[in-house]
């Protein structure tokens, strides 16, 4: 079933078609919500709100963009509204990183037990500490494999800004990973 058939059926109130739509796009919404709000408790409720909004507003979808991009835009806007309401962080701050909290992990590093799983955790922690706009760009580009154009449509940021955020976030990641896992190089190299 292609997107236009699916949309037509959802517009007619076919709940089975809507179930199909949800199953097809729930990972995209979940990834965005989880990475943006950094809170597991609120994340699932927010995902439900997003899909309810998709269902209510599907009549307004004119097919000018891909369905996934349109759903992504709704998810992004809902998350930004949620963050503004909660005021947990300044949504528009672009360069300030929160401190990365690791607790026990730093001690593990000392014992040189650096494996891929640990580096994955480090990367995810660094992403969590990044400003909102870096997190969204990194998630859409790497996890959802979206193009610059699609990211521009979802976030409303110009393509140049998207590229700049991607480069900057990549740089931050590289620096922070090296900083938090100082013995990363020898250990990884030895594994070869």
């Amino acid at each position: 079933m292609d997107d236009s058939d699916l949309i037509a059926q959802v517009k007619d109130g076919n709940t089975n078609a809507f179930r199909f739509l949800v199953d097809k796009h729930k990972n995209l919404v979940w990834h965005l919500v989880f990475r943006l709000i950094n809170q597991r408790e609120d994340a699932e409720d927010l995902c439900q709100d997003i899909f309810i909004r998709v269902f209510k507003d599907i009549g307004k979808f004119r097919g000018e963009s891909k369905l996934s991009t349109w759903i992504g835009t709704i998810a992004y806007n809902t998350c930004i509204d949620h963050l503004r309401k909660k005021s947990r962080e300044k949504v528009y701050s672009t360069d300030k990183m929160r401190p990365v909290e690791f607790g026990k992990m730093s001690q593990e590093t000392a014992s040189a037990k650096v494996d891929k799983l640990y580096i994955k955790k480090v990367v995810h922690k660094v992403i969590e500490a990044m400003p909102v706009h870096y997190r969204i760009v990194i998630t859409l580009y790497h996890l959802e494999e979206m193009s610059y154009k699609e990211i521009e449509e979802i976030t409303g940021m110009p393509e140049g800004t998207v590229k700049s955020y991607l480069n900057r976030s990549r740089q931050i990641l590289r620096e922070r990973v090296m900083q938090l896992v100082p013995d990363i190089q020898p250990v990884l190299f030895d594994q070869d």
């Binding site: 994955k120 990367v123 995810h124 990549r170 990641l173 590289r174 990973v177 990884l188």
Partner: peptide
């Protein structure tokens, strides 16, 4: 190698799922 590991981590799903 580090870049490849960062890439791998960036493409990995979050630890929790719906």
């Amino acid at each position: 190698e580090i870049e490849a590991l960062i890439d791998e981590a960036l493409r990995a799903d979050p630890d929790f799922s719906l």
